[in-house]
Simulated assay, not measured.
Amino acid sequence: MIEFRPNAPKWRQIADILKARIADGTYPVDTPLPSEHELVKEFGVARGTARKVLTKLKEEGFAYAERGMGTFVAPANTPES
């Protein structure tokens, strides 16, 4: 688990961590992002917080969802080769 900064919402801090992982190639294009359950387990947050993280990543264009499959890294916001 990480130590959260008190001056920023937890969901934003986790979203920033996931965006950094996308940028550094930890999560390549079209690969699944952690599920809500995995985010809850890794970061020790409520399921609603984990859901908001994934929702915001989709809204910001970093991820897309496939019904019944999960949330995946979108190609638009990854470093170009």
Rank of each mutant, 00 (worst) to 15 (best):
I2H: 03
I2D: 01
E3K: 10
E3W: 06
E3M: 09
F4V: 04
F4G: 10
F4A: 09
R5A: 13
R5L: 15
N7V: 05
N7I: 03
A8V: 15
A8Q: 09
A8K: 10
P9L: 15
P9G: 08
P9C: 11
P9D: 12
K10N: 09
W11I: 00
R12Q: 14
R12S: 12
R12M: 07
R12P: 01
Q13N: 12
I14K: 00
I14F: 05
A15F: 01
A15R: 01
I17W: 11
I17D: 11
I17A: 08
L18T: 06
L18A: 04
K19Y: 01
A20N: 04
A20Q: 05
R21K: 14
I22C: 03
I22W: 04
I22S: 03
I22H: 04
A23F: 09
A23D: 08
A23Q: 09
A23P: 02
D24Q: 03
G25P: 00
T26H: 08
Y27F: 15
Y27C: 00
Y27N: 00
P28E: 00
P28V: 00
V29K: 12
V29Y: 07
D30G: 06
T31V: 09
P32S: 08
L33M: 04
L33H: 01
P34L: 04
P34E: 06
P34F: 08
P34V: 05
P34D: 05
E36M: 10
E36L: 08
H37K: 14
H37I: 13
H37Q: 13
H37S: 14
H37A: 15
E38L: 15
E38H: 11
V40I: 13
V40P: 02
K41M: 06
K41L: 07
K41F: 07
E42Y: 03
E42H: 03
E42G: 01
E42A: 10
E42N: 07
F43M: 06
F43C: 05
F43A: 01
G44F: 00
A46C: 09
A46I: 10
A46N: 14
A46L: 13
R47W: 03
G48N: 13
T49Q: 14
T49L: 11
T49S: 15
A50W: 01
A50T: 03
A50G: 10
R51A: 13
R51K: 12
R51W: 03
K52N: 13
V53Y: 04
L54F: 07
K56T: 15
K56W: 03
K56C: 12
L57R: 06
L57C: 06
K58R: 15
E59A: 13
E59P: 01
E60P: 00
E60V: 02
G61V: 09
G61C: 01
G61A: 04
F62E: 00
F62G: 00
F62Y: 10
A63I: 00
Y64G: 08
A65N: 11
A65G: 15
R67C: 00
R67F: 02
R67V: 07
G68L: 09
G68I: 12
M69N: 10
M69V: 06
G70S: 07
T71F: 04
T71P: 02
F72C: 08
V73K: 01
V73D: 03
V73M: 02
A74S: 14
A74H: 15
P75E: 08
A76E: 15
A76C: 05
A76H: 12
N77Q: 08
P79K: 05
E80V: 11
E80G: 05
E80P: 06
S81T: 09
